[in-house]
Structure formats: C-alpha cells, structure tokens
Design a protein around this nucleic acid. Structure first.
Lengths: 136, 136, 136, 136
DNA sequence: TTTT
DNA sequence: TTTT
C-alpha cells in the first residue's frame, strides 16, 4: 500500500516486446518516530497486462495496493560496477485512492484493478461429490 | 481487499471493556468462471483501537484492505453443539474505496487508515555505526 | 507453518479426476497465555500436483509451511443445513520438519517442496536494455 | 524460505546496545528457466531477541523461513555517494531444514523458532459474553 | 447472513 | 475431529 513517487515508466522488452512497467511506491511507516524515516521506497515491476494497466492508469501520487513477490536483480553500470536491486514483482495491482473518484472527462473509465495468472485448473472450484462433505 | 457485506458490529468485552469489531468482507475472485462462486466471504475481527476505527468509519459496501492473520475459534450453540470459526484478525485496516471521496458535510474527516502493534524497539530505525555498510 | 493434525485426505474430483488433498494444520500461537487456545486449526486444500505431493509425503504430525490464499465454501448437510467453511488453498507446500531427515528405507527420496502455477511469461526475467538503469 | 548464503552477522547498536543480525537468503525460484537467475538474494535484518536467536543458531547453508516486512534504507559510502538498500525486517524466524536434525553433541538444544511482538492486549483471546455468539 |  |  503506497503512493507512486512519480509517473510509472512503461517499456517493452527487446526480445518479444513484453510490456514492463516500473515505479516506486512510498509506503508510509505506521509508527514513524521523530528522526526516523517516515516511508519506505519500494521499487515495483509489473509485466505484460499488469504493466499496461499500470502504464495506463497509475499516475504520480495516487495510492495503490500491490500484491506480489520480492525479487532481486543485478546490473552493471558504465564503469562495469555491479549493482544489486531488490524489487517487488506485482502480481496484482489495485487502485486504493479516493483522488481518482469524481473524476470526469474523456476517455473510457479505468478498471479498478488488474492481476495476472489465471488459476490452475481445479482451483477455486470445489468438486461436487457424494462423499464430499470434507468435515475433515 | 473486499467490500463489507453489512455494517460492522462493534462490541466490548465484559472483562476489561476492550472494543471488538466484526464484519464480513466479500472478496471478489479474480478469475471467477461461470457456475462458480464469484466471491469469498471472509470474517474479520478487529480489536481495541482498530475496532473503534472500524466501528466509526467502515460501513456496508465500502471497499477496504485488511492485513492480518488467520485464527480459529470454537463456540457452542444453545444445543451445546460446537461450532468452528475461521477468521482474520485485522492488524491493519485501510480504506480502499473511491466512494468516500468527494464526501462533504458535517463531522470530522475520517482518517484513512488504522493499525495496531507499535513496533518493538529497534524496529524501523537502523543503527548508525562505523562498520555499518552491510553491502552484504 | 504448522503440524498436520492427522493424515491428509486425498481424493479425486468426479468430473475430470483432479486430485484434491485436504488436511488441517495446528498452527501454534506465538504468545499463547494461560487459559487461551494454544493453536489455530487451519484447514488446507491442495489441488492437482500439489495435492498429489501432499498425499504422498505429508503425514500426521510433521511440520510444514504452506503459502496460499483464503477461500470460503458452502455445503449442505443431510438435514439441508448450510455450512460455511473457510480454508486455505495451498499454492506452495514445503516440508519444514527435521523428523523426516535421517530417514532411511525403501522408496524414492521425497522432494522437499511443491508448488503450482508456473509464472506468466516475462516473469522473473528482466529485459536487458540500453536505457535500463532504473535507478528509480 | 531460503538458505543462508553465509554466516549471519551479529552486531549491537551503539546507542542502546540492541542486537542486530543481518544475513542474506538465497531463495530459489520456483520455475527458473535456462539462462535465468535461479535464486533471489534477499537481505534480512533481525532485531533484539530475534537477532540473538539468529546469531546463535543460524548458520551458513541452512534453510530457514522468515516472516517479515520490506523496508528501505539509505547509506553514504566513503565518497559520499548515497546507496539504497531494500531488505526484509524479520518478525518471525524459523528453522526449516533437516540438516540440523540428528545433530548431537554438547550445548543446549536450539529452540526451533523465534518471533517478536507479543500481541496487543485483547488479541488472540475472544471475549466470553452472554450475547457473544458472533454468528455474524 | 452476503459486497460492487 | 486436533499437531509437537
């Protein structure tokens, strides 16, 4: 849960042209004390459909909720120095902000949410069966 | 992330008069298929300050985000039959709804969030130390 | 994180013969006080491959770690009374127990883990790109 | 869930001498493909009691389970350059490894787990009350 | 007993 | 119906 520190960046992979969105979330600490940081700045990456959703509807300052997993990456700068990056890969992205509401004007209304990974078969549907009571 | 199926109930323990709020969240399934349930109905309990926040600001139909842990309970009905309940104990509660915005009228503005458990000492503040680089 | 209260049940859906495993986890409370419950009893369901993994290797009493999501279900008993069940659908299942080790005897060694849902394409692999610095 | 990449470092804050443990977890990716990274390297920090637990019992290579939250920090190197660090603050730490078992020899047996933050009052104990059924 |  |  946090606010975008700036506009998200939307790019496409060179290989198969997959959409990638990246942005940073300012996540306010719940019990920040005097003289301590008041927020964490979490880097988030989203892929394909989620990336496009982000690129289209997320803007600087709005509050969003992200569900995802932590990942790390390495990249080399111009001087050949290795950098380590820890970021969250978004599996679900939600609006969680009231600033968007009351919004008017052109354009189709933004869907409120996006997530990847349709569940594997069987998931979410319980087998109807005679001896299916499962009062384990 | 879900919507309140009805007004939350706010009560107080007999012993030390701690506030307890309980409500149910309709959490829409992300990939509901035809003929399958389209939502899960998650029971949530909140305690003390979080409970009061909930009782004061949460209302039927609004969308909220809850962070918490799963717990189970047992209770006996009038016929002495044992019932098993699984519920989420809310550690954090957030508004995540646009309906509240644009809101006008009397009353003090609602805070947007509440959470319990101030962190244990040391938490959230990193020691400044000479050999503190931790470039792992 | 918890221990199986009994052997898991492995069944198959009537329709497409998908494996379904169900079991209960005794999750010990971290700060149980006198006179309070010392554990939560969380019902878990696993599907297809994860279910088969569970059915094959999980046994009463061992400690396991489950990553998943909460879901609810409804079923009617013989008297037509509706029952509400809240359970965790396992997306990942791990051994987290030392009792298995040192184990000898016939049979192939158990893999230590199982999980469903191969990630969507693009996931987990970052595009190498010229302007890819992302030092946010 | 991952393995320590090396021995954890245990230090104490200069101010109030709070224990701080830091270590890195190699978290194997579940569906690593050819040519992709097979693990994420997650930096973890633990405080006070949890830190001491870690310093005492966690060693290179063992598998552990960590429950915590993401945090970010900033530090300046010798040349005054700012560095950004994202890490997990451990709220719970568990052994999840079979290598420790069968272990013999001197020393007191290691507890299997540690966690911080005793719950706020009211938590985990449900009020007994006449009209307390909560069949919401 | 279910929300939009 | 509950595990160590």
């Amino acid at each position: 849960m946090g606010r975008l520190t700036k506009e998200p960046e939307l790019r496409y992979t060179t290989g198969n042209n997959t959409a990638v969105a990246s942005f940073t979330l300012a996540v306010n600490r719940r019990f920040a004390q005097e003289g301590q940081p008041k927020a964490d700045f979490i880097n988030v990456v989203a892929w394909s459909k989620t990336a496009e959703f982000v690129g289209k509807y997320f803007t600087k300052g709005i509050q969003v909720a992200i569900v995802g997993r932590i990942q790390t990456r390495t990249w080399d700068d111009n001087e050949g120095k290795k950098h380590y990056v820890t970021e969250v890969v978004a599996e679900e992205a939600y609006f969680a902000d009231s600033k968007r509401s009351g919004e008017t004007g052109g354009g189709s209304p933004a869907p409120r949410t996006y997530s990847e990974n349709p569940p594997s078969s069987g998931d979410g549907f319980y087998p109807i069966d005679e001896d299916d009571e499962l009062p384990f």
